[in-house]
Amino acid sequence: MPEFDLAFSASLTEETGHFKLLELPTEICALVENSLTPLRFSVKGQSSEDAVLCTPDDKTYTIRSVVLSNNILVVTSDPENDAAVVVRDQLTEILELTPTLPKLEKLTALLRGRDLDDVADNADGEPEPGISYEDAKSLIQASDGELASTLRKRRILDIRGKLRPIAPSYLTTILETILNHIVAQGLKPEAVPASELSATLADENEISVAVSMQVMTWFGNLNDGVWVLDVPAVHEPLTREELLRRWKLAVGDTFEASVALDLLSGNYLETASTGLFSADTLTYFPSSALPVEPASRFADLFLTRQRWRAEDISPFLSDIALNNKERDKLLLKYTRTTTDSGGQVYYTKR
């Protein structure tokens, strides 16, 4: 068994606390081992926030310290003596990574009041004050993949170098205009010439190319100048007052067969009829507008309704729970279950 001379570094006092030992989860180890190119991980978090580690694609991990029962020495070889090692530091803790949801609540605050809501506001021009995509990447505790997915889901545009949410009513107008052009020009939804369509929208409807091209990427695939329309995705009522009848009317006869209520999961509340001749009603209620912190999320949900059925509340928890198991843990922590005379189970405030 080889033997080595052990010595303490001359700069041990200065180096103490400079080293950290990070334990990698199995999935990150596999990512590192199987990657053919160098990987770049980022640690995000300001002084008032818990640090997170973000992978290059779509994972975010909370970093937490775990105290060790035994100290670990950090040693390096001695460049002047091959038979010696130098003690550089001693560690009493390791850093552990735990999968977590991206922390997106700051994005809402940063973009508040920046909605793009009419034709006059979307023309090309000089850069304006606001937050850029690069700013968001550094400030928001989420991986690049998670941030890009969130910007898409929340319908946030990059206009003149700044991020701007699009007002639901204006997006509805753009979608209706696009669908009308597709039908009027006899275009095939699976092969729409994107440049021609965006130029037509700019000339005839004053919708800038920058806006229409980004909207197209939200509702289909854009490759080599050809837009493949995702018909189910485009059927999305975005105003508070839209009901199913108006939704079908808005998309027209050509597309109304693809209208389905389950496409709106997590974006509406259904109120059952209360009279002999009254009908069920839908109210716009997007989960993206609710707080991300679980306690606040449940508080808002129970301010909206005093009791929830499992199938009604679940869509509003999918974006704060990694999986069904985590969702059930949240329900156990923040709710009580009650059963009515008919055997229906409800969740109520704890």
Rank of each mutant, 00 (worst) to 15 (best):
F4G: 00
A7D: 09
F8A: 06
E15D: 13
I28K: 03
A30G: 02
S35T: 14
P38F: 10
V43C: 13
V43T: 12
Q46Y: 03
Q46K: 09
E49A: 03
V52P: 05
T55L: 10
P56L: 15
D57P: 01
D58I: 08
K59C: 07
T62L: 15
I63Q: 05
V66F: 01
V67Q: 14
N70K: 14
Q90T: 12
L97F: 03
T98H: 07
P99M: 10
L104K: 04
G113E: 13
D115A: 14
D117T: 11
A120Q: 15
P127W: 09
D135A: 02
D135I: 03
A136G: 04
D144L: 14
L151N: 05
L151E: 05
I159G: 00
L163N: 05
A167F: 07
Y170C: 02
I174G: 07
L175A: 05
I178F: 10
L179E: 04
L179Q: 08
A184C: 04
G186S: 14
A194P: 03
S195N: 10
T200C: 10
E206C: 07
V211M: 12
S212Q: 01
T217Y: 11
L222V: 11
N223V: 15
V226M: 12
E236V: 10
P237F: 12
L238Y: 04
T239G: 10
W247N: 10
L249M: 11
L261G: 01
T271G: 03
A272E: 13
S273P: 04
S273V: 02
D280L: 02
T283Q: 13
S287E: 14
S288M: 09
L290I: 08
L290T: 06
L301A: 06
W308R: 02
E311G: 01
D312Y: 02
F316T: 01
L317F: 03
L322W: 01
K333G: 00
Y334I: 05
Y347V: 04
